[in-house]
């Protein structure tokens, strides 16, 4: 008995969705109609493929996020022990954040944060 609890909640979530789906299948009214299974596009038939190359800006932000998220991953342990360590921790994180901040400013100036 311990971290199995997480698995229990996982299963509970699955049961909830699967059960409700099952229930819905059980009681819903069904009708067949080919138009119903078309993708919705404001009443028009879809033209061209949907899965196309997407705007690169999204990836750019994803990459930026990755970097800053990892930064948070380092900040969390630091934050936990900050009270105990004190001055050294403060200075070190200052260096860390200054470099990161420079990175952010750099991305800013390079136009990586601009959504075009």
């Amino acid at each position: 008995m311990g971290s199995e609890a997480i698995i229990v909640f996982l299963l509970a979530g699955i049961v909830l969705v699967a059960g409700a789906n099952f229930l819905s299948n059980l009681i819903s009214h069904k009708s067949d109609n080919p138009q119903k299974r078309e993708p919705y596009e404001s009443g028009m038939t879809t033209v061209g493929p949907t899965w196309v190359q997407f705007k690169v800006g999204y990836y750019l932000f994803a990459i930026l996020f990755l970097i800053f998220d990892i930064e948070v991953a380092f900040l969390i342990p630091w934050a936990v022990v900050f009270k105990e360590v004190g001055a050294v921790a403060f200075i070190e994180i200052l260096v860390f954040l200054v470099i990161l901040g420079l990175g952010l400013v750099y991305a800013w100036k390079k136009g990586a944060l601009k959504w075009e």
């Binding site: 009681i27 009214h29 299974r37 949907t50």
Partner: peptide, 10 residues
């Protein structure tokens, strides 16, 4: 719940 579970063919 009582609605049909549909999905698109594609």
């Amino acid at each position: 719940v009582s609605k049909e579970l549909t999905g698109t063919v594609k």
